[in-house]
């Protein structure tokens, strides 16, 4: 992607005496992981198109602490949280949007007790609002009729009960969605949560991401859609293991929308 993106940085915007309405929390994956960076860029494209007044923290952003917390390192988590909260509160941030369900969950649920109270949105919820408010128009011919299945990220679905927002977005695109046998509250984890992303799995007879990819492939999709950078990595790897990468793409819902603007 060589499109010119407009990405205001909080420190600069505030220095000009302005207060952005939204903070876009990019997250560590969204900042550093090659695949996730594409999702980040796709989402910014949407933000720009809708003229959303936002900024990112840039080099002032640090790990949300989610991975540390799930791994049991409460110290490290709370140190990260308190440090981030200091920065966010100094900028008087009120509303946060993020593409990562893990950041979404911890910012929304676990930060308030430590002094960070914000209104937090997952990007699928946010995009849904933009569309409902008429801020962006989605062309429904780019992916029309494509066979799509949606994988619910655990930290968006079961953890926070958000099942409809991403599905509504798929509806706007006019794609042909088929649910997997395990979906919504019975969805199967991609295998990355709980800090598993950063370690090898314990001995077993299969990798979790392969099992989940099999669930998805059983719907014979052309696109596996999801809303989490970690799920994306896990399922992309799963599709490779199953040697289906020529037929099946793994894409974030934001990427589908961005390509249909």
């Amino acid at each position: 992607m060589s499109e010119q993106l407009i990405v205001p940085v909080m420190a600069d915007v505030v220095a000009q005496g302005k207060q952005p309405e939204y903070l876009f929390w990019v997250g560590s994956a969204g900042s550093f992981d090659d695949r996730a960076k594409k999702i980040t860029r796709a989402f910014v494209k949407i933000l720009n198109k809708a003229n959303v007044d936002f900024a990112v923290l840039g080099i002032e952003e640090s790990s949300s602490g989610d991975a540390a917390k799930r791994a049991g390192n409460e110290f490290l988590f709370q140190m990260q949280a308190v440090t981030n909260i200091e920065v966010l509160n100094a900028y008087e941030v009120k509303k946060i949007v993020t593409c990562c369900p893990h950041s979404y969950n911890t910012l929304k649920n676990e930060y308030p007790e430590l002094g960070g109270k914000y209104e937090v949105f997952h990007h699928t919820q946010f995009i849904q609002q933009l569309i409902s408010a008429g801020k962006i128009k989605v062309a429904n011919n780019t992916f029309k009729g494509k066979k799509v299945t949606f994988h619910d990220p655990c930290y968006l679905g079961r953890a926070n009960g958000v099942y409809e927002a991403p599905r509504d977005l798929l509806n706007f695109l006019g794609v042909n969605t088929t649910e997997m046998k395990r979906h919504k509250s019975t969805s199967l984890c991609c295998g990355a949560g709980g800090a598993q992303m950063f370690k090898d799995a314990e001995p077993g007879d299969k990798e979790i991401n392969v099992l989940r990819t099999e669930d998805a492939l059983a719907t014979q999709p052309e696109i596996i859609a999801t809303g989490c950078p970690f799920c994306n990595t896990m399922l992309t790897d799963g599709v490779k293991v199953k040697e289906q990468e020529a037929n099946v793409q793994v894409l974030d819902v934001a990427e589908l929308i961005a390509a249909s603007l």
Binding site: V7, V9, G58
Partner: peptide, 14 residues
């Protein structure tokens, strides 16, 4: 400040 060994200063490279 990230679970991978990247430099904090590179956070905006994307």
């Amino acid at each position: 400040g990230a679970p991978w060994p990247y430099n904090q200063m590179d956070r905006l490279n994307w």
